[in-house]
């Protein structure tokens, strides 16, 4: 049984077709990496999964339930699917802790004491306890992105989407964020990443999809994609990306 499945998803912005029939399956606990040049549709796929963008055609299933039915209230789905963005998008007027507790407080309806303890545990788990009561602009990029991950995890999502989460970071800060991803993978989180970190994808991904012009050109294990790519386009992209 697939945890998450996309069938022939089509997304257009006006005349511009960004996803041109994307199909993709993610099993429970898998880490799937979407690779491809900028504009290939990686980010849009993630935004569609989280229902931030309505899709023109196709279906998206979470636990074999169609979540892409037009008119469906997206809130339930979104609280099951966490998302982390390239530019962190923390709420600047709230401390790290307030960022993380906002949605659970509004939606999960737990008592304040239980919730506080739970969120504090999350910060502790990702070694952010000292920074818990700082505002985003008092944190480094890496810390901000880790807080953004904590904020998404605070909703106890079943699937996590990561949209090029290391692209806006200084090179020396990338490591601490990727470590968090490995930690999540070890704990069995189901994850979909759009990424330019080829070495990371090669080492950590269970499955890699190469996207071009809104289509999945080729998918397979890291070994298959990196060592024996079948499509010429995949080969060409990897040659450029790994240079």
């Amino acid at each position: 049984m697939l945890k998450l499945e996309l069938r022939n998803v089509v997304k257009r912005f006006g005349e511009n077709t960004v996803c041109n029939g994307i199909s993709l399956g993610v099993e429970q606990g898998q880490m799937v990496c979407l690779i491809g040049a900028s504009g290939a549709g990686k980010s849009t796929v993630l935004r569609c999964i989280n229902l931030l963008e309505p899709i023109e055609d196709g279906e998206i299933f979470l636990d074999e339930e169609d979540i892409s039915i037009p008119g469906l209230n997206p809130q339930n789905v979104r609280s099951k699917i966490g998302m982390v963005f390239q530019n962190f998008n923390l709420f600047p007027h709230m401390t790290a802790f307030e960022n993380a507790i906002l949605a659970p407080k509004r939606i999960r309806g737990l008592s304040k004491v239980d919730l506080n303890a739970e969120i504090e545990m999350l910060f502790e788990r990702f070694e952010l306890t000292e920074r818990m009561h700082n505002y985003p602009d008092q944190l480094s990029g890496g810390q901000q992105q880790r807080v953004a991950i904590v904020r998404a995890l605070a909703m106890k999502p079943e699937v996590m989407l990561f949209d090029e989460i290391t692209s806006a970071l200084d090179p020396q800060l990338v490591g601490e964020v990727l470590d968090v991803l490995l930690q999540l993978k070890a704990q069995g989180m189901t994850m979909v990443l759009a990424t330019h970190e080829m070495q990371f994808a090669r080492q950590a991904a269970d499955k890699i999809c190469f996207l071009k012009d809104g289509k999945v050109v080729e998918e397979g294990t890291a070994k298959e994609i990196f060592n024996t790519p079948k499509q010429a386009e995949t080969k060409a992209f990897l040659e450029r990306a790994l240079k």
Partner: peptide
């Protein structure tokens, strides 16, 4: 992007 981030958490 602030709106996207807030919506993605499941807020109304």
């Amino acid at each position: 992007s602030q709106r996207s981030a807030a919506l993605s958490l499941g807020l109304s």
